[in-house]
């Protein structure tokens, strides 16, 4: 243990002297700055709706009263004004409402890229709006994506789990491999290998460095963006578990190669594959069963639970447990392999 600690102190000194450390901190700060100053609290997601009414004045006024209070609906005079407005905002839709033999009919004006389901949504929106003529119905024109969860994070906070997963679980893969190969190149691994210390102490020290960096960058980010409403004990647990898993995986993978260049390809493929669940995270409609088996899936979703006000704590605890165990198993495997290959 004393030797592990000595090795860790040495590695820490080396990383304070190295570029990776400042790069990671720098990236965290840039990420925080971008989130705070560039990304809006919530993305603009509602659709502009242009409407023209070819009705008698009395009816027009009724409609305008009903709709005028909605920001997303703009009442225009005629078809050509609608078309012009829609050309300027390619995400908007329009409709013309007229009376035909005492029945109210409407004509949808679309951009052309809308698919069937979108058309139905818009139709439902307009019909709902027309129904508001009947007293007792309230205005219901804004179309929004349906939320799976009852709770919703602000768009800004919603991005944090992606960052934490990338930073802690995936980038660690690359950086720990880089550390090992740097040591190999410098030859210092050989000097270490002929001292009365074990390979696992060498590897564990590297993982502790990764953990230290992961904790620093994650805490900076979450503190700056979310503040104190997060359970930092759970955050600590999640970072420790995912970081252990990520860096042990990085160690295991790099044990199959003797240069960074050779290892790069495999590490890259792994990271790309692990990024797939981001799609599920951002687009809840894409959620096939198999994607849940990617480690980054539970990583992101348990981070999100952590950020929810009433997150599922047992889910968080379970993921911490699972990834700690997986990480330790990978570490044992990496150690077993490196015992034979570290100095060759």
């Amino acid at each position: 243990m004393r030797k592990l600690w000595m090795t860790f102190l040495k590695d820490a000194k080396l990383s304070f002297n190295s570029f990776y450390f400042y790069m990671e901190i720098g990236m965290a700060l840039i990420f925080v700055a971008v989130l705070l100053f560039v990304v809006p609290e919530n993305f603009e997601s509602s659709q502009k709706f242009y409407i023209a009414m070819e009705l008698e004045t009395a009816d027009t006024e009724t409609f305008q009263q009903l709709m005028g209070n909605s920001e997303d609906v703009t009442v225009l005079d005629n078809r050509s004004e609608i078309v012009n407005a829609m050309k300027k905002d390619r995400s908007s839709v329009g409709a013309i409402i007229r009376k035909n033999d005492d029945k109210i009919v409407y004509e949808m004006i679309l951009q052309g890229y809308e698919n069937e389901s979108m058309k139905n949504l818009i139709k439902a929106g307009i019909e709902g709006e027309i129904l508001t003529q009947i007293p007792g119905f309230s205005s219901q024109i804004t179309v929004r994506t349906l939320e799976m969860d009852s709770e919703k994070l602000s768009d800004r906070i919603n991005i944090i789990p992606i960052y934490l997963t990338m930073n802690v679980g995936l980038m660690g893969l690359f950086i720990i491999a880089a550390y090992i190969f740097l040591d190999k190149e410098e030859g210092v691994i050989k000097a270490y290998a002929v001292a009365p210390v074990a390979v696992w102490q060498y590897l564990a020290s590297k993982m502790m460095i990764m953990l230290m960096m992961g904790l620093i960058t994650s805490f900076i980010t979450v503190l700056a963006i979310v503040g104190f409403s997060v359970n930092y004990l759970y955050l600590f647990g999640l970072i420790v578990a995912f970081n252990t898993f990520g860096s042990a995986l990085g160690l295991f993978l790099s044990s199959f190669f003797n240069t960074m260049v050779k290892a790069m390809g495999v590490l890259y493929v792994f990271i790309m594959i692990m990024m797939l669940p981001v799609i599920s995270y951002l687009m809840p409609s894409f959620n096939p069963m198999w994607i849940k088996w990617f480690p980054s899936y539970p990583m992101m979703f348990s981070m999100r639970e952590l950020l929810f006000e009433n997150g599922d704590q047992s889910y968080i605890m379970m993921q911490i447990g699972i990834y700690l165990v997986l990480g330790l198993l990978l570490f044992v495997a990496a150690n077993h392999r490196f015992k034979k290959t570290l100095t060759v």
């Binding site: 030797k3 040495k10 000194k13 410098e186 030859g187 000097a191 001292a195």
Partner: peptide
């Protein structure tokens, strides 16, 4: 081929190694 930590000083290199024994 000499193999010392380039980012550590000569003394730090020796002091670290010494403590492994």
């Amino acid at each position: 081929q000499s193999n010392v930590y380039g980012k550590l000083t000569a003394l730090e290199n020796l002091e670290f190694y010494r403590k492994l024994f």
